[in-house]
C-alpha cells in the first residue's frame, strides 16, 4: 500500500501538483486519470522518486519514502517495477538481456536460475520466441510486454505503469490491460497506472483517482466512474460520443425505457 499525503511539486513558478492525498491499495490496479497536463506523470515520478516533492509525504507501507537517504531509497526502488510509456527498453540489449538485466545487477542467481526466471516472465506475458530479438525488431505491443516482463522479474511489490496503452491499437491495449490486471492480482502487487484510455478505466477492476489541474478532483472505484456527479470527471470521461451513448443507454435501462 502507498499512502500519499498532501504532496506538492512546482517547476520554476508553475505549480504542477497542488497538494494531493490518496491511498493506493495493494492487490488492485490504481488508475490515475486526467487530461494531458493535469500532473499524472509528475505525480507518478514523485512516487517513484524521479522527482522530489516540494512538500508532503509518500509512505510505502509504513516507510516514509521522502525522508529516506539515497541508499535507503535504493532498497525501496528494488521493490518497484515500472513500465514506461515508451517501454524504455535498452536498445543495445536483446529482449532476453533486457529482462535479465535486473537479475544480473542485483542477484547472485546462477545462469540457469536467471534463464529460468527470464523464460517464466516472458512466458507470463505471452512472449515466446523473441528472446534473441532487439527492441528495434519487435512491435510496440511486444515492447510493452517485454517492459512488463522486465518490471516483474525481481518480484516487485509495486508496479508502476505510465500510460501503458499509448500508441497501441485497441485490441493490443485490451491484452496489455488484462495482463496488468492479472499480474496485479496473481502476485498481490500494488499497481499504479497512469492512463487516459477510458477502455482501461472501464475494463480494469480497480480504484480510480482523477486529477485535474494538479488537484485530486475525484476518487472511487471504476464501477462508480460512469455514475458519478462530479462535473469535471464527467466532462473528461464523456468527451467521446461513444461513451455518451453508453451513459444514455445505461440511464434508459435504469428507467426501464
Amino acid at each position: 500500500m502507498i499512502t500519499v499525503q498532501n504532496i506538492t511539486k512546482s517547476f520554476a513558478d508553475k505549480q504542477v501538483l497542488k497538494g494531493i492525498s490518496t491511498v493506493l491499495e495493494t492487490g488492485k490496479v490504481n488508475m490515475v486519470i486526467g487530461t494531458s497536463g493535469s500532473g499524472k506523470t509528475v505525480f507518478m515520478k514523485c512516487l517513484v522518486g524521479l522527482f522530489e516533492p516540494d512538500s508532503g509525504h509518500i509512505l510505502y507501507d509504513t516507510t516514509d519514502f521522502t525522508e529516506l537517504s539515497i541508499k535507503e531509497k535504493k532498497q525501496i526502488r528494488m521493490k518497484i517495477g515500472m513500465l514506461f510509456q515508451g517501454s524504455a527498453l535498452f536498445d543495445s540489449m536483446t529482449v532476453e538481456e533486457n529482462v535479465q538485466f535486473p537479475l544480473n545487477m542485483f542477484t547472485n542467481m546462477t545462469a540457469k536460475e536467471k534463464k529460468d526466471r527470464v523464460d517464466f516472465c516472458l512466458e507470463r506475458v505471452n512472449l515466446v520466441g523473441a528472446h534473441k530479438k532487439y527492441p528495434g525488431e519487435i512491435s510496440g505491443g511486444m515492447m510493452k510486454r517485454v517492459g512488463i516482463a522486465r518490471a516483474i522479474v525481481l518480484n516487485p511489490q509495486y508496479l508502476f505503469c505510465d500510460e501503458p496503452n499509448s500508441g497501441l491499437d485497441p485490441q493490443t491495449s485490451l491484452l496489455i490491460d488484462k495482463l496488468i490486471e492479472e499480474i496485479t492480482t496473481e502476485f498481490n502487487i500494488t499497481t499504479i497506472m497512469n492512463t487516459h484510455d477510458m477502455n482501461s478505466v472501464i475494463g480494469i477492476n480497480g480504484k480510480v483517482v482523477f486529477l485535474h489541474q494538479g488537484l485530486k478532483a475525484w476518487e472511487g472505484s471504476n464501477k462508480d466512474v460512469l455514475h458519478n456527479d462530479n462535473q469535471l470527471l464527467n466532462d473528461f470521461i464523456f468527451a467521446s460520443e461513444f461513451l455518451k451513448e453508453i451513459r444514455r443507454e445505461a440511464a434508459n435501462n435504469r428507467l426501464g425505457l
Binding site: K45, V48, G49, L50, K74, Q75, R77, M78, I80, M82, F84, Q85, G86, A88, L89, F90, D91, F101, P102, M105, F106, F160
Partner: peptide
C-alpha cells in the same frame, strides 16, 4: 541523450542502479 529522452536512464534509476 537518446537514453535520456527515451527514459532508459529513468528505467535504470528506478531499478535502483
Amino acid at each position: 541523450g537518446t537514453m535520456r529522452i527515451s527514459e532508459q536512464i529513468d528505467a535504470l534509476e528506478i531499478m535502483g542502479v
